[in-house]
C-alpha cells in the first residue's frame, strides 16, 4: 500500500514529463549531435560525417556571429533601460489616486500591445515607418524635420525595431511594477504622505524595496526575451538593411534556414542554449526559493 502511495505522484506526472521530454529534450539532444557533424542541406553530397568541434570552432571564429551577439547586447542596453524607466513612470501614474476612469482605461489599454501578435506588431511598424506615407515621417514633418528613410538606413532601422519593442513590452514592465506597488502596505504609505508630498522621496524610501523583486524579474526575463526576439524583427526588417538589425535569433535562423548549414546553426543554437540555462538558473535562484525548499 505504501509502495503504491509512493508511486502515486509519478502516475500523475508521467504524461506531462514524457511529452515534455519528447518535445523539449529529445530535439535538443538531436541538435547536440548535429552540431558535431557536417550538415549542409544544400550540399547533400558532402555527407553528414562527424567533425568534432569544427562547427563550434567555426562559430567562435566567425565575426558575423559575434556581430549578431554584440548587436543583441546593444539592443538590450538601449531598449531595456528605456522600458524600465517608462514602465516605472506608467506604474506610478496608474498607482496614483484620482481619475479612476482614466486610470482604468489606461490600465486596460496596456493589454493591447502585450496581446498583439509580434508578427503583426512588425506589420504595424512597416506601415508607420513607411518612408512615403508613414505617420512617423508625418509627425517629423510637423516639427520641420525632413523625411527619414526609417527602414532603409542601418541606424534608423535599429531605432525602429527598438521603438516597436519598447511599444510592445513597456506595458509588461509597467504591470509588473504596478503589482509591486500594490504590495506596499497602505498604512506605511499614508504615514509617509503626512511627512512629505515629494513623490521622489516616497518612491526612494517607501516604494523602492517593494519594486526590487519585480525589477529583477524584468531584467532577467527581458534579457531572455531579447535573445529570443525573432517574429517582430523578421517581419519589420528581416535583419536588414545589410545586417543592421540582425539580432542573434534572426542570425541563427538565417544560417539554419537560408544558408541551410544546419551543423553550424546547431552549434550556435547550443551556445545560445547554454546562455539561456545560465539566465534561468539566475531567475530560479531569485524567485523560487520558497517553492523548492
Amino acid at each position: 500500500m505504501t509502495q503504491r502511495a509512493r508511486r502515486l505522484p509519478y502516475f500523475f506526472l508521467m504524461p506531462a514529463v514524457v511529452a515534455l521530454f519528447l518535445v523539449g529534450i529529445f530535439p535538443l539532444l538531436f541538435a547536440l549531435q548535429v552540431s558535431f557533424r557536417q550538415y549542409q542541406l544544400t550540399k547533400p553530397y558532402l555527407g553528414n560525417s562527424f567533425v568534432g568541434f569544427a562547427n563550434y570552432a567555426a562559430v567562435l571564429q566567425d565575426p558575423s556571429f559575434w556581430g549578431a551577439l554584440s548587436r543583441t547586447l546593444t539592443f538590450l542596453v538601449i531598449a531595456l533601460p528605456l522600458e524600465v524607466l517608462l514602465g516605472l513612470g506608467i506604474a506610478l501614474l496608474l498607482d496614483r489616486q484620482g481619475m479612476p476612469l482614466l486610470r482604468a482605461l489606461t490600465r486596460i489599454s496596456l493589454v493591447i500591445p502585450l496581446a498583439t501578435t509580434p508578427a503583426v506588431a512588425g506589420l504595424m511598424g512597416r506601415l508607420m515607418f513607411n518612408r512615403d506615407f508613414g505617420v512617423a515621417n508625418y509627425s517629423l514633418s510637423l516639427v520641420g524635420i525632413p523625411a527619414v528613410e526609417w527602414l532603409g538606413q542601418p541606424n534608423s532601422a535599429f531605432i525602429s525595431v527598438a521603438l516597436m519593442d519598447i511599444w510592445q513590452w513597456t506595458p509588461f514592465v509597467a504591470l509588473v511594477f504596478l503589482a509591486g506597488l500594490a504590495t506596499v502596505p497602505p498604512e506605511i504609505e499614508e504615514a509617509a504622505k503626512l511627512e512629505t508630498t515629494r513623490w521622489q522621496t516616497i518612491l526612494r524610501y517607501i516604494q523602492l524595496p517593494f519594486l526590487l523583486p519585480g525589477l529583477t524579474a524584468i531584467l532577467i526575463l527581458r534579457t531572455a526575451d531579447i535573445i529570443k526576439l525573432f517574429d517582430m524583427v523578421f517581419v519589420l526588417t528581416r535583419g536588414g538593411p545589410g545586417s543592421a538589425t540582425e539580432l542573434i535569433s534572426i542570425y541563427v535562423q538565417r544560417i539554419g534556414f537560408r544558408v541551410f548549414d544546419q551543423g553550424v546553426a546547431s552549434a550556435q543554437a547550443i551556445l545560445l542554449l547554454i546562455l539561456t540555462i545560465v539566465l534561468s538558473r539566475l531567475y530560479i535562484r531569485f524567485f523560487y526559493r520558497e517553492v523548492t525548499t
Binding site: 515534455l20 518535445v23 523539449g24 530535439p27 535538443l28 538531436f30 541538435a31 548535429v34 526575463l221 531572455a224 535573445i227 529570443k228 525573432f230 542573434i248 535569433s249 541563427v252 535562423q253 539554419g256 544546419q262 546553426a265 546547431s266 543554437a269 547550443i270 545560445l272 542554449l273 539561456t276 540555462i277 539566465l279 534561468s280 531567475y283 530560479i284
Partner: peptide, 13 residues
C-alpha cells in the same frame, strides 16, 4: 527553464 529557451534552438532539430 522552458520559458527562457529561444524557439530557434528547438526549431532547427
Amino acid at each position: 527553464s522552458n520559458r527562457m529557451v529561444s524557439p530557434i534552438v528547438l526549431a532547427l532539430p
